Simulated assay, not measured.
Amino acid sequence: MSMHRKTITLTEQQNGWVKAQIESGHFGNDSEYIRDLIRRDQQAKQRLAILREALVEGESSGNPNPLDISAIKAAGRKRIKAVD
């Protein structure tokens, strides 16, 4: 994988935060921390896209049926007993 050098500007507070993350041992250097933030942002965007797709699918699946809370609770209790 090729690497690309970027220059970023941080406030004193942000720089202190990054340094604290490195000093705590979570990251070896600034670049590792920034790459981790980018990965997390990518994952969050992917989860959001999946959720949006599921919402669209649910909305287009037809008219909803009324919920039977008693049946839902009974099914949950049955699943719990099956695990025990």
Results as ranks from 00 to 15, higher is better:
residue 1 M to L: 07
residue 1 M to K: 06
residue 1 M to Y: 11
residue 1 M to T: 02
residue 1 M to R: 09
residue 2 S to G: 10
residue 2 S to I: 05
residue 2 S to C: 09
residue 3 M to V: 13
residue 3 M to L: 08
residue 3 M to P: 01
residue 5 R to E: 11
residue 6 K to N: 12
residue 9 T to A: 10
residue 10 L to N: 12
residue 10 L to I: 00
residue 11 T to H: 06
residue 12 E to Q: 04
residue 13 Q to E: 14
residue 15 N to K: 09
residue 15 N to P: 00
residue 17 W to S: 12
residue 17 W to A: 08
residue 19 K to R: 09
residue 20 A to C: 07
residue 20 A to I: 00
residue 22 I to C: 04
residue 22 I to R: 00
residue 23 E to P: 05
residue 24 S to R: 07
residue 25 G to K: 02
residue 26 H to Y: 08
residue 26 H to Q: 11
residue 26 H to S: 15
residue 29 N to G: 10
residue 30 D to F: 08
residue 31 S to V: 05
residue 32 E to Q: 11
residue 34 I to C: 03
residue 34 I to L: 10
residue 34 I to P: 01
residue 36 D to G: 09
residue 37 L to H: 03
residue 37 L to A: 08
residue 37 L to S: 04
residue 38 I to G: 01
residue 38 I to P: 02
residue 41 D to Y: 09
residue 42 Q to F: 10
residue 46 Q to V: 10
residue 46 Q to S: 12
residue 47 R to N: 14
residue 48 L to C: 09
residue 49 A to N: 07
residue 51 L to D: 15
residue 51 L to M: 13
residue 51 L to Y: 02
residue 52 R to A: 13
residue 53 E to T: 11
residue 55 L to V: 07
residue 56 V to W: 00
residue 59 E to Q: 08
residue 60 S to P: 01
residue 63 N to K: 12
residue 64 P to I: 00
residue 64 P to Y: 07
residue 64 P to H: 07
residue 64 P to G: 07
residue 65 N to A: 13
residue 65 N to I: 03
residue 67 L to F: 00
residue 67 L to I: 12
residue 68 D to S: 11
residue 68 D to A: 03
residue 69 I to Q: 15
residue 69 I to L: 07
residue 70 S to E: 04
residue 70 S to I: 02
residue 73 K to L: 15
residue 73 K to Q: 06
residue 73 K to V: 15
residue 74 A to P: 03
residue 75 A to D: 12
residue 76 G to V: 05
residue 76 G to M: 06
residue 77 R to W: 06
residue 77 R to I: 11
residue 78 K to D: 01
residue 79 R to E: 09
residue 80 I to C: 03
residue 80 I to Q: 15
residue 80 I to H: 08
residue 81 K to G: 04
residue 81 K to N: 12
residue 82 A to P: 01
residue 84 D to T: 08
residue 84 D to K: 04
residue 84 D to F: 14
residue 84 D to H: 09
